[in-house]
Design a protein around this nucleic acid. Structure first.
Length: 489
DNA sequence: TTAGGGTTAG
């Protein structure tokens, strides 16, 4: 009965795209082969594994690793379906998976925290002599670290040789970088000190560690490592200096950053576009728009051409600290100069417009992305959905959400969190039902909601008299291992 | 996938 009620009131919130959706008109990835999006629709709509297998095994589809990888990429935000697709295709009579597709499938299982499937895939890969490669281990280590299992990441690295994959300096550097990027810098530094002799740590290894300390805003530590590097006879390069410069800005040490920049110039460092981009961004974030502009003009005079990221940096800080209209002037200027704005550029402008309350102009830019064949990504949708919801136009947010379901861009964890959060503002009982339905759907797609999300939805459903649905959610919460400690089923 | 520059909000 409950599902009937939901279907009646919220049919606009489709769980799956309709059979004959306007898939190709809403997808922005025009560079992908058309077939990939067609196959994605097929996989998303099918409920019968046998019929799906038949379709996938039919001789009309010319499978290539590129096509398989494109489909997996599209299904990235629906992990269970992605793995289902990968498995069905594993039984194809003549096609066999490429190593890169195995890497994708391993990446997806890791993100679902389905470690059993992950290691089963690694075994299959090995028995078919397709790997695992250092890249496979980089993926696995990164996912373990991102899931808060940094020790497992290190263990995986240490056991690589048991899978016929020998550790060398580059895989050592990879694990250091993985740990640093997940903010486990202390652990990375200890591993580095323990093994730097064995692997003959190079300039790259030191740069990774220096960057690690900078990422957690501990610039004195970064300087210490930099000194150590020199003492051991390694020469810092431009990358080292760019890391340090960015680190000062990130830590809010604007004067130190500026002095460091001047020092780099004085010492005739071959300052590059990355250096200038960091300075422009750093000054802008600190509110020093005029100085940022000056540096931008200066770089052109020095013969260093701005890049798309340079324009992005300037556009972002203008949106934040100046005005979106000035940012738009820069946007049009870059286009006139022959630069091709990327998704980030558009997203920055769209966010700027949303922030200024110009929702219609923001939507117009989304249309311009389509015209320019620029990929509309999940961030683009998330920005617009968030601001529509924040400004009380929840229906428009839901419309965009629905467009995602039928387009080539599936919602991610952020999308669900934004929308579920928005379902509480109107204090409408029906909204809570939608929140519950979104919660069910996100779990179905392999996302793990936070405990607080479950609790809020549960409270809401109980308060609005939806005891039945609340019970269903509670069971779901239990299955996800997110049960509050006090409650027993 | 061996290192550095745009995506995040209040």
């Amino acid at each position: 009965m409950l599902t009937g009620l939901l279907r009646r009131n919220y049919s606009h919130l489709r769980l799956h795209p309709p059979k004959h959706s306007n898939f190709t008109t809403t997808t922005a990835t025009a560079t992908q082969p058309l077939e990939a999006t067609t196959i994605v629709t097929l996989v998303l709509n099918s409920s019968n594994p046998q019929t799906l297998a038949q379709s996938l095994h039919s001789s009309t589809i010319q499978w290539t690793p590129q096509l398989v990888n494109a489909v997996l990429k599209h299904l990235w935000n629906h992990g269970p379906k992605a793995l289902h697709f990968f498995n069905l295709l594993s039984h194809h009579p003549s096609y066999t998976h490429h190593a890169s597709s195995f890497d994708h499938a391993i990446d997806i299982s890791a993100r679902l925290r389905d470690y059993r499937t992950l290691w089963a895939l690694v075994s299959r890969m090995r028995s078919r002599r397709l790997g695992p490669s250092p890249k496979t281990f980089a993926i696995i280590a990164e996912r373990y670290a991102a899931a808060g299992k940094a020790h497992r990441a290190v263990k995986v690295f240490m056991s690589m040789h048991e899978y016929g994959c020998f550790q060398d300096l580059s895989s050592f550097n990879t694990i250091l970088d993985v740990l640093c990027k997940s903010k486990r810098v202390e652990m990375a530094y200890n591993l580095f000190k323990a093994l730097r002799g064995r692997f003959k740590a190079d300039c790259v290894s030191y740069n990774i560690i220096v960057n690690g300390w900078c990422l957690i805003k501990r610039t004195p530590k970064a300087l210490e490592v930099l000194k150590e590097m020199v003492e051991r006879g390694l020469t810092p390069n431009l990358t080292t200096y760019n890391i340090m410069l960015k680190g000062y800005f990130r830590a809010g040490q604007i004067n130190e950053a500026w002095d460091f920049f001047l020092e780099m110039k004085k010492r005739n460092c071959e300052i590059d576009v990355v250096t200038y981009t960091s300075v422009i961004h750093g000054l802008g974030v600190a509110g020093e728009i005029k100085r940022a502009r000056k540096v931008f003009d200066q770089m052109v005079k020095q013969g260093v051409l701005p890049s798309v990221p340079t324009y992005n940096a300037l556009i972002q800080v203008l949106c934040k600290k100046d005005s979106v209209d000035n940012a738009l002037l820069v946007f049009e200027e870059m286009v006139k100069m022959g630069y091709v704005p990327n998704s980030t550029t558009y997203n920055l402008v769209i966010r700027g417009l949303c922030h200024a309350g110009e929702m219609q102009r923001a939507l117009a830019f989304m249309g311009r992305m389509k015209d320019d064949e620029c990929e509309i990504n999940v961030q683009t949708y998330n920005i617009l959905i968030r601001y529509f919801c924040d400004s009380g136009e929840i229906e428009k947010g839901l419309d965009l959400f629905q467009e995602m379901g039928t387009g080539g861009c599936l919602p991610n964890l952020d999308t669900y969190n934004i929308l579920i959060g928005a379902m509480f503002v109107r204090k409408k009982s029906d909204d809570l039902l939608v929140a519950g339905k979104l919660l069910v759907e996100m779990v179905d797609r392999g996302f793990l909601p936070r405990k607080i999300t479950f609790n809020r939805v549960l409270d809401g459903l109980l308060l609005t008299g939806n005891q039945g649905f609340a019970k269903e959610i509670l069971r779901l919460q239990s299955r996800c291992g997110r049960l509050p400690s006090k409650i027993k089923l």
